[in-house]
Nucleic acid binder design. Structure first.
Lengths: 334, 334
DNA sequence: ATCTTAATCCAAAACGTTTTGGATGTCAAC
DNA sequence: GTTGACATCCAAAACGTTTTGGATTAAGAT
């Protein structure tokens, strides 16, 4: 039974309206009155009921973020979340997180949170091809912002921030060809990930730059986890001994790749070069430290929120579709 | 302008009450009516306004979690959060996250979120000595649950889940003495952390078990980050060359310790043994893989929520103060 | 004395829902 | 034809706030 405006009204003898306006800093309440009211409010530990305020004002100062269920140990997601939380706080917004359970229909959480008026806007991550979440958010007209574009053959006509992963992978491949590698394998993310196509494209361009022919059998798909890199690397090295370098499309897989290489009695960085993607914390402290394509995950989270807040406030930013550059962080696996 | 009960009422000719009760599954509405109402609701894409519902029912089905500002890259925190989110979802609860900004007064966020009725309960982590957040939550009577006890000299008479870190460190020290180490250093967390005392205690007990005298100069304090382990290790090894083993109170610091050891031309696991604490993902994939005291972080998050939900539902669990065991994961740094 | 103006204050509506306490109608039993 | 019993429905209050559109009073101008 927390204190309400009504309580202060009764204690002070003023009306609820006046209490509200006094605490709200309006000018139509006399200094003495205001002081008295503030005094009482402090004394009984009044805190405004935010739910009531939200209902009345029809805004929540809250941003929604729905976490897929299979993302427990994903360094990318938690770092993105930290960036989101940090920026949101600067705009006096909180973040409402809903974890999606395996058995639930995918859109259910979006309907509940977004359709149920619990948030002013949403950030959606991990776009897949033809993403139904975007269709839904568009249909209800709620502000949203996306981490990652759609695939190159789809139009991404919504506000997003993505990283130029095509260019990133290309730089990585060039880096390898410059060191003499000509048999370079690629471990892609699953097909349905929207960015997969960009990475494959970058790989092809990189090979092209060095006049190396594309070989389909050097390109495989991993599950984005340690095990994916591990298994595919064993497969690749067992079947194509000519391979001297492997580009994995995230750091988790790259670390799995390193382990597989070691298991085969080879030396990472000497016999087989490895490049990852993301530059998560583990990459820098792996042994040997992993050469990787860094994307500024925390910053992406921050900028997503900046963009979203502007859209919520009806001041759509000029740049609604941002492509951030990647950096090739050269460490000791190449 | 999302659809409301009123809209359905107007379209169907029934009253708002009936709409509400039809959709709510009450038995006092005829099958035909209910069917018609559901039909219209689906047709216009009705979703209940959760804010209104929260206000009316005086409960939010939301759990609050406030993240300190200095926790961006902390693997512990994000993993705890994942556990929290996962368990909360199973109880149909969402998680409201508020990031605390550096300049803000600490309790401000708690007052806003907890005092402002935005959540049904809170989980507080990273207890410090004489924690004011607990005092506050207790004063307003909001259900809460704590990750980690207070220091041994304070009474922790609130629901918590902690890990028996005293026993953990003791096991680690015993493991080291069994391998012949007699000059074992300890890098503690900052004083104000409540669990620091437990770890020091475990260290003392472990030494005692092997009849090794306690030496004050072997015990230092680090900042819980990579740099803390790094700097203190350089200090220790420069001043006390007799040291052959270092226990760091979290994995981040342990990884810093490993780096410092390498920089001094020594070999981790051979010249100097290292043991960490937590068993974050990076520990297992470090090179060499880090021997560490594992605490089940994800599970702690889950159990915190189970406990909290029970308290919220007024069914206080018999076990309100849980001490989970740690596991010494022996890898290759010892 | 009357009129303006400014300074304070407040009643009531509104946000969208759930819940309480009936109201109405129908049908069977007597 | 009266009485219950049951099925179906609904008006109004309530949750705690903000906001609208005045009302009241006092002071200053004429």
């Amino acid at each position: 039974m927390p204190a309400t405006l009504k309580d202060i009204a009764q204690l002070s003898g003023f009306s609820i309206t006046t209490i509200s306006r006094a605490l709200g800093g309006y000018s139509d309440v006399s200094p003495k009155t205001r002081q008295r009211i503030i005094e009482i409010a402090n004394q009984i530990g009044y805190e405004p009921n935010l739910v009531a305020r939200q209902l009345r004002q029809q805004q929540t100062h809250t941003i929604g973020f729905i976490i897929p269920e299979d993302t427990f140990s994903d360094g990318f997601f938690s770092q993105l979340l930290m960036g989101i939380g940090h920026a949101a706080a600067q705009y006096h917004n909180d973040v409402l997180i809903s974890t999606q359970l395996p058995d639930n229909e995918e859109l259910a959480a979006y309907r509940r949170i977004a359709g149920g008026n619990r948030v002013d806007g949403m950030v959606v991550a991990r776009t897949r091809q033809n993403d139904p979440r975007i269709t839904y958010l568009e249909s209800i007209g709620l502000p949203y912002v996306v981490s990652g574009r759609l695939a190159p053959d789809e139009v991404s006509d919504f506000p997003y921030i993505d990283v130029d992963s095509q260019d990133g992978v290309r730089k990585a491949v060039i880096h390898l060809t410059e060191r003499g590698h000509r048999h370079i394998a690629l471990i892609l993310p699953p097909q349905e990930m929207a960015y997969t196509a960009y990475r494959l494209l970058g790989y092809c361009l990189g090979l092209d730059d060095a006049n190396i022919p594309y070989r389909d059998e050097y390109v495989v798909t991993g599950n984005l986890e340690h095990s994916g890199g591990y298994e595919q690397t064993h497969y690749l090295l067992a079947n194509f001994p000519a391979i001297t370098a492997i580009v994995a499309c995230n750091d988790h897989m790259a670390l799995g790749t390193m382990e597989a290489i070691r298991e085969r009695g080879l030396t990472v960085g000497k016999d087989i070069a490895v490049i990852g993607f993301d530059d998560i914390v583990s990459a820098g402290i792996a042994t040997p430290p992993l050469t990787t394509i860094r994307q500024p995950i925390f910053e992406i989270g921050e900028r997503l929120i900046q963009m979203l807040i502007q859209i919520i406030q009806n001041q759509p930013p000029k740049e609604q579709q941002v492509l951030l550059p990647t950096t090739l962080v050269i460490r000791q696996t190449t």
